[in-house]
Design a protein around this nucleic acid. Structure first.
Lengths: 199, 199
DNA sequence: AAGAATACGGAGCCACGACTCCACTTGTCA
DNA sequence: TGACAAGTGGAGTCGTGGCTCCGTATTCTT
């Protein structure tokens, strides 16, 4: 829903400002979290608050635009790997890269969480887009025997969001990633029966 | 640092109100998240806002008290399992129970995250308390061969926080828990080398 | 070049939430 | 039981942040 075609094309300066605002918002939200003020975004973009609200009538909508852009970029990246030589490495590498990025960009975690449940359809089509691209990566990795067959793309997304959170807020490190990776690749660790069963 | 002994004992009604406020705060924060207003807490507790602020001079301090109580309860629960018959079941069961509780109580996730990094020493001694109790459970499970030897209590805490988040915000379910459990129990899934390595 | 049409900026409005203050009530202790 | 300290309630203050309004500036069009 980002500026549809129905209206006549934006004026040149308006287009420029829109881009500046979006970039500034992404940066500000990445550093200060999504509760940063709209004022701050305007300042960083070097425009008036009025301009911000002209392009994004609501803070909510600005946030949405940023998250969508983030998700789209991730989806694109995932798509770029869809025919990598080593399907397993492609999958795990992508996973690790997203997590390491979340360490710096607070917004990534939220974007993923939003994308997971589209309770609010916020993420629009970008959420599903990423899920689909990730799904391809996953399917190939599974076919190659690098990832267990009984996990879904949705579960991987949830895992991704959880790890991003753990990394960003709870100080998780390499070790945690290793555990999850082993869990993802494990073909039934052992049928001893000591394990799971959530009570 | 919650009400030290230096002062004379609280009056009976004050004590009662303090408890009411704490209980209300826990409930409110659990349902509406930690950004719920202090007013709401007062209303739920059936006292004036003034009273809330008399007992907890800052919203921050109220939140802290709630989180500490939560963590202490978890630590207690973990301690109760320290000599269970099946060390593996005790460990995994505890883990699963915490996660399932986070599904309902928003505050749990934050409490764990805070406890993980005591960047702000918010969680005071309760964070370390839980970590210690969890450490015992973990060590026993490792000794019993139910959990791989190369994970630390800190890593488990981070994993716990991440899973709580994933469950609460990203719609994770049973499947995700299973993956992580397998990762935790796996003794080196396979040394093929396709896996981890964060880039 | 000049007249729309469009976009800009930022002062100001409004709602909300943390926190204060103090007249009043309640427990406590002699 | 009286008197005083301790505690209470909630109206009001202050600051912040989302959002509006409109006079001014910039672009587009002819």
């Amino acid at each position: 829903m980002t500026t549809s075609a129905s209206r006549r094309p934006l004026r040149a300066d308006a287009l420029r400002n829109r881009a500046k605002v979006l970039a500034a918002a992404e940066e500000v939200f990445a550093v200060q979290g999504t509760s940063a003020s709209t004022d701050e975004v305007a300042r960083r973009a070097g425009v008036g608050i009025g301009t911000v609200f002209r392009h994004f009538p609501t803070k909510e909508s600005l946030l949405e635009a940023v998250l969508v852009a983030l998700l789209e970029r991730l989806a694109e990246e995932a798509e770029g790997l869809r025919s990598a030589d080593d399907a397993g490495a492609a999958f795990f590498g992508f996973f690790a890269r997203v997590v390491s990025r979340a360490k710096v960009k607070q917004a990534v975690t939220e974007a993923l969480a939003e994308a997971g449940v589209d309770a609010h359809d916020r993420a629009g089509t970008a959420g599903p887009g990423l899920k689909a691209a990730l799904g391809v990566l996953l399917a190939r990795a599974q076919a190659a025997g690098a990832v267990r067959a009984d996990v879904s793309a949705g579960e991987v997304m949830a895992l991704l969001a959880g790890l991003c959170y753990a990394t960003e807020r709870a100080g998780a490190d390499e070790g945690v990633l290793r555990v999850v990776f082993d869990g993802l690749s494990a073909r039934r660790a052992d049928p001893r029966g000591a394990g799971p069963s959530a009570t």
